[in-house]
Design a protein around this nucleic acid. Structure first.
Lengths: 222, 222
DNA sequence: GTCCTTATTTTGAATATTCAAAGAGTTTTG
DNA sequence: CAAAACTCTTTGAATATTCAAAATAAGGAC
């Protein structure tokens, strides 16, 4: 089990892609490639290798899923990443918007022992500065339940997971508004009567969507 | 200038080898290979490459020296390494005898920004837990006049400055004997014939070390 | 000076990872 | 359903780094 950095990256990204897709549906290689930041050809090669090592289950032209073994390792990597992020913000005073890149590198350099000390120093946090849950030392992480924006309450801070419509018009609109997966949004208002949801991304001007559209945007806590 | 991790390791090790050899004398490839932990053939290949990049000056069958440029980079790496070590001991409470290995990995993962914050958090330390000087952010490092215990004379009173071995076993021993940096010791006897040095710390029972071990403990007057 | 020992260099091959570009398979569209 | 548009896979090649083993050079012994 040569736990290379590359393998950890693939596992981590794949895990996160799985989190926001239907249970059991394979992730297409294009998505994996994009998430990891390589060309599709590279992703195919690597995924086949990892499948051979029992970390993933790969079906040509359909996609890939993590095995239980792969998932376990992925959780460990995510734990490292998020604990490091939390430390960088809370103890070194870095800006929460910039710690991701730092953690991306550090997560592969922190030993188990150092990680434990950091965890302790931070008081065993359960979520990182972005609100994402920190997987416990050993064991599964709670499955993040996603729900449509239309069922959120005013004031909640959520992250966009999926866009459940493939119509170009809709996707263009979402892009224009900045409503892309992985974007953190704050629900300003949800009103049945007005048939509308108002959101705010960062410090931008709030945007308003109809409930029908909001139904097709799924979000998760964090 | 692809500043790879490997290059940094070669630079750092070579710098340290130079520190304990005559001024200007090239370091033979065998020493470099051993320090970096590769076979001699590998060291030759790599050193030639780095020489081509202007980081080292290489003379076949004689050895290698850092150029000014290589030295500057080496100092930066050393600075990272030692600040990380200091942090691990002072803030995470790791044992000083085991932080070397951790820092060996982390030194390559810490960004300039994180390094600065750590330095600040630690109050700009000037030496690490092993007594080795931490190079300042930019500029040369002071050349501390120290000599190995093996070259002291009986009767001298000196202070332990640095421990020049990174093996946890050696460091543990030093700790057990009370031979930590900043400790004042009296040299009771130095004998080439017996291959031994005898020391006394305060009013404790004298301890005796072999010359090889005494070579790795550097002291200064006072 | 020739021989032996030891240090160094060269050579050839392997690892892990990557990309670009060509080829094959699906899906969408009219 | 045929053509067009995508997506995915394959192929060939490149990168950086490494080792093992063979070849070579230097320094001493006698």
């Amino acid at each position: 089990m040569p736990q290379t950095i590359t393998a950890q990256d693939y596992l981590k990204e794949l895990f996160q892609l799985q989190q926001r897709s239907e249970e059991g549906v394979p992730i297409p290689m294009g998505r994996v490639a994009e998430a990891v930041g390589v060309t599709p050809g590279t992703a195919t090669t690597m995924v086949k290798r990892f499948a051979g090592e029992g970390l993933m289950r790969y079906t040509p032209r359909r996609g890939v899923r993590l095995t239980a073994k792969g998932e376990k390792i992925a959780l460990g990597v995510l734990r490292r990443h998020r604990i490091v992020e939390t430390f960088l913000v809370q103890h070194l005073g870095l800006d929460w918007s910039e710690v991701h890149a730092e953690a991306e590198v550090l997560e592969h350099a922190v030993s188990e022992k150092v990680l434990d000390r950091l965890d302790e120093l931070l008081g065993h946090p359960t979520s990182d500065p972005h609100g994402s849950p920190i997987p416990p030392a050993n064991g599964k992480m709670r499955r993040v339940a996603m729900r449509p924006l239309s069922r959120c309450k005013a004031g909640q801070r959520v992250t966009i997971g999926r866009l459940l419509d493939t119509a170009p018009g809709f996707l263009k609109l979402a892009e224009t508004l900045g409503l892309l997966p992985d974007t953190a949004v704050r629900v300003v208002d949800v009103s049945e009567e007005a048939d509308a949801v108002t959101l705010q991304i960062g410090k931008r001007k709030p945007v308003t969507l109809g409930l029908t559209a909001a139904d097709k945007i799924h979000v998760y806590e964090g």
